[in-house]
Every structure is written in structure tokens, then in C-alpha cells.
Amino acid sequence: MNSDSPVVLVVDDEAQIRRFLRAGFELDGFTVEEADNGSNAIRKATLSPPDLLIVDLGLPDMDGSEIVQRLRAWSSVPLIVLSVRSNEAEKVRLLELGADDYVVKPFGMAELLARAHAALRRRVTTSTGEPIVKSGRLTIDFGARLVTIDSERVPLTPKEYRLLQVLAQHAGNVVTHQHLLKEVWGSPHVHDIHYLRIFVRKLRQKIEVDATKPQILLTELGIGYRLAASPPAPAIGARQITET
């Protein structure tokens, strides 16, 4: 991916933040564009659409949710928001508005890069219609509706499969509780988080080495779940598939 040098538009009013983001992204092979306020960002994004947007929420001229909404009105460009507020409800709202992921300031560059790559990959998979998503030892074949671990088939119930499918479509990025509940159980159950918890537990028992130490299906407390983009190789060797 680095070879075609994806363009990232960094939107932040703090020059120091833009400076280190530029260094970090350039070291990782990105081409960096900058904007110091919301209207500049929208103009730049319109004139030459970037491959990725990093948007700070405390912009002087525009509320974070406004910029997300205005961009999402016409563009599906991957978008990650930077927030100093550790307010979970705010994050959930921005994700529901169409942000692909969030990072809470202060953050490490590695964390942001991991989110950025995941968001970029989502665009590649959706545009090319890639039928297979991998997460470490886990493979999800959308075409065949087949889930395997180390090439061994994992028997899943329809709802478990649907849950995994929605997460896999956003592999590497967070998916909110509300979104998952709506996709798997339907709108009336959008607040029944305990459904999700119980199903995630069962799913983890089938796909994780140790369901209490998940490496694939990760929890974002108070926000949602995230399918690990590239989990570390398992320390334990072959595992047994839980019987259903």
C-alpha cells in the first residue's frame, strides 16, 4: 500500500500536532496535506479528494460533528477523528454520523497508524468487492459464508455469522454497539447491549484461543467492538474448535 503513497489530509488547528502527524505519516509512506480549520479542510477535500482524513474535533470554526456530517454528505473517504474529550457518548455519536474510527488525545503514533491502515483497507475491500477478510488465524469468506480458523471450519449460528460479518466489513475499526445490534437483531433491539455481550462471549469461545483473553474480537469499552486487523501470532499452537 505504501508504494502508491496514499494522501492523508490532516485537519488540526494546533501547528505542533500537525507537525508530528506529518512526520509520523511521512515516515510511514503517506503524502501529507494539512488544513487548520474546518472550511479549509472541506475545500481541500473537495478540490483533491484525499485517501484518508484525520480530523481534530476542537476546530475553531466548526464543530466536529458538523465536519463529519458535511463530508459524509458526498464522500465515503475514510475518516478518523481525534478527540481530547473522553466522553463515550460523543464518540458514539461521531461514529454513528459516519466517522470510521476515533483516537483519544494524547495518543501514540503507532495507534493512529494502525487505525489509519484499517480504515484504508476497508475502502479497498469495499471498492474491489474482496470476498475474504483475514484476522490472524481467522478467515471469513463472505462468498461461501465460511468461517475458518487455521483452515478448520468453525460452525456458527446465523446470528453469530452475521455479527462476525458486520465486524469483518470494518475489520480493524470500531463498530458501535448500536450499529451491531441494528444490523444483527434489528432496530427495536438497539439498546439491548446484553444480547451483544452474550453472543460475543459465545463467538469468542468458538474463535479465540482463550475467550477471556480475546485476540481477534476486541472490546472497546462503552463504545463497541473491533475485529483485530492483525493480531499477534498465537502463543499456543493448534486449538480445538468448541463444539456446538
Binding site: Q16, I17, L21, G58, V84, P106, M109
Partner: peptide, 22 residues
């Protein structure tokens, strides 16, 4: 406080992590 202290801290921490990976 949360804004004034954390904004420079975000730059320091972010820059440090970039340095660590350079």
C-alpha cells in the same frame, strides 16, 4: 485545564512516539 494541559501534552507524546519509531 483539560484542554490547556493536554494539548501540548498531545504534541509531546505524539512527537515522542514518532521519534521512537524513527
Amino acid at each position: 485545564v483539560s484542554h490547556e494541559l493536554r494539548t501540548p501534552l498531545a504534541s509531546i507524546l505524539g512527537s515522542a512516539t514518532v521519534l521512537c519509531n524513527t
